[in-house]
Amino acid sequence: MPDNKRHITRFVLLCILLLGIGQFCFALVPESRQTKAGHFNEEKLAKFRSNRDFSYENNSPMNDSIRERIRYYIHEFLKFIFSDKGAAPYIRYTVLAAIIVAAIVYLTGGKYQWFLAKESNVKAGIVALPQDDITQIDLESLANRASQNKDYRLSIRYHYLHLLSLLNEHQYIDWHKDKTNTDYLHEIKPPDIKAQFKQNTVVFDYVWYGQFQVNDQQFYAIRESFRKLTESLQNRTGKE
């Protein structure tokens, strides 16, 4: 391609020519118009630095309003936490973890049982039931804790829920949130289980929905009845 080579050669010559013209023109500028390097006056700089109005880093908030002071201290704290020159890394991560935990507690409204171990369930009052699987909750512990606190109504509730959980586990019933106790009673086929469950259901209905008070003696009798059915279920292998 001779034409291409010729064009490239012309372009290179043109560039050299332009550079040469530029150098020539710069040499023609008078010496008086050439730039001189300036120097700072150290005395003036020191005077400015001593003036509080020009001190941006250590601006004391004592003369400002309360709002400005609060903002200043928050700013200083965040700077201390997050800047490389500030707090040690472990302090930084501790503070961050505390902020995250506080946010979780605030957002969940304190209902963070799912977040912690089962032990937290025991400390709670009335536990919301999971929609599909009531075996997720340690109902026996809850029932025992409630009876220790002499809250027999709540204890009977947990005992009954534990029964439902076992019946579901052994496939005598199919647990679902919309079903009533009567629905479950219709689902149970073995006559002995059905009879015992019916008796316990009536008791639960009276105590939980009917708000009947239960004394110590009544509670022990009810708990014994629940225990018998629980044992019957645990001794069986499955749906019959």
Partner: peptide
Amino acid sequence: MIQMQENKLFE
């Protein structure tokens, strides 16, 4: 032990 009959347990 009292009888586990709901009609006897609750009046």
